[in-house]
Design a binder for these strands. Structure first.
Lengths: 221, 221
DNA sequence: TGGCTAAATATACGCTGTATGTTTGTCAAG
DNA sequence: CTTGACAAACATACAGCGTATATTTAGCCA
């Protein structure tokens, strides 16, 4: 029985399974809760066994990040650039929100995983095909990515669902003295009163960038 | 002598001094290298002494982040909104770049430090005074902040100085097979060849956002 | 069947944040 | 001038971390 179990577990540990379980753990409890020991336990193995399949924790996180990037809907280089960029950005936002731990390590290191390279290539390709020069395409991609990254990072830490948004504002309101922070106080008051919601802000900011890029493309050509 | 030294050190430890030294450490070696033990050593004290002035490590980082935010040039609520927003964004970018460790904890937690509240109040106030409604001001601030945060986070991890940018591209070029990633390969080739540089991209993307906001303001009024 | 190899394991080291309990310097009141 | 209270610095200890190193084990091929 013990022997059988051990036999059954033998050879069944793979890099993919480790990444799977690590992502499940990070999705559920965040990156801080991700330890090699807990990952090992989740896949039913001793901590050091992981190191037969992953160089170290950093490289494990790299693999997790590239897995996340692979979920992003990359553009078709031949497609219409604006729709493609928009779809990619919306997809990125959704994916990065689903894996709320991923944004920081994605931006915070230079990842050369295949999914990351594929996405960068497809994005630049689409822009170049549409008439942007390579430098312009690079600038455009940077501007779009900046918006997505920055927005998602803000989004991850503040509640975006309407009622959570309102409740948070109502909760913080007492700690914002009106004499010192009159504008901030009023903003929180209006939010707490349900006067507006925040969850379409992403596409608002995105279209600001895309509109600007569209104008730039025609003015430069 | 020993007694004198101890006497001299008595009562001289303050919260500000701890934050000072912690920031120096983080600036020099990054957040990962920041441990309570090293901070204690830097201020010349036993690790546990820090806890008389700081609740725990998280709150210490909160204090460090608020100190960073206090270096940002906040807008004057009465000033012209576009210039004010532009100056604030440029200042944020410079400050966050100088303290390269600060962006993640700044965005990654809900900070209620006085500097953070002051900045949010001044920014919203300036926009509201300029004619934006509160919801509009909130959207505008979110869009601007998204760009700054996202850009800085990308900037911190890639070399932005022209020669470093070129060198990095040249170094990565061999690991980007032209058959698989043709566009990315060509982009890296052009960068490595010095055909363009990246360090004015920030203001390019920022103006995209600001132009869009300006159009929006006149179209809605 | 008997080695060879790769994968799983056991042990151990130096590091982390911080709970807990003790000592010590300082200042106010008697 | 002394004494008692209080806060701040200290010492010790614990559980957890990543992972270097050495060892055992299981599966395959000759």
């Amino acid at each position: 029985m013990d022997g059988d179990k051990k036999t059954a577990q033998r050879r069944t540990l793979t890099r993919d399974k480790i990444v799977d379980e690590a992502m499940r753990l990070a999705d559920a409890e965040g990156l801080d809760a991700l330890s090699m020991r807990r990952v090992a336990q989740a896949v039913g193995v001793t901590p050091m066994s992981l190191y037969n399949h992953v160089a170290n924790k950093e490289r494990l996180i790299d693999a997790m990040v590239d897995r996340v990037v692979s979920e992003i809907e990359s553009p078709d280089p031949e497609g219409p650039w604006r729709e493609m960029m928009r779809a990619r950005a919306v997809s990125m936002r959704e994916v990065l929100f689903r894996h709320h731990w991923a944004s920081v390590p994605l931006i915070g290191r230079i990842t050369n995983g295949p999914a990351t390279l594929h996405d960068a290539n497809a994005t630049l390709g689409c822009l170049v095909t549409a008439g942007f020069t390579y430098p312009q395409a690079d600038w455009a991609k940077t501007a779009i990515d900046s918006h997505v990254y920055g927005y998602v990072l803000q989004e991850v830490n503040y509640p975006v669902d309407p009622e959570g948004f309102r409740d948070a504002a109502a909760e913080h309101l007492p700690s914002i003295p009106i004499e010192v922070y009159p504008f901030l106080h009023e903003a929180a008051r209006q939010i707490a009163g349900g006067d507006y919601e925040g969850h379409t802000q992403f596409e608002f900011g995105l279209d600001l960038v895309l509109n600007g890029l569209a104008d730039w493309l025609v003015s430069e050509s």
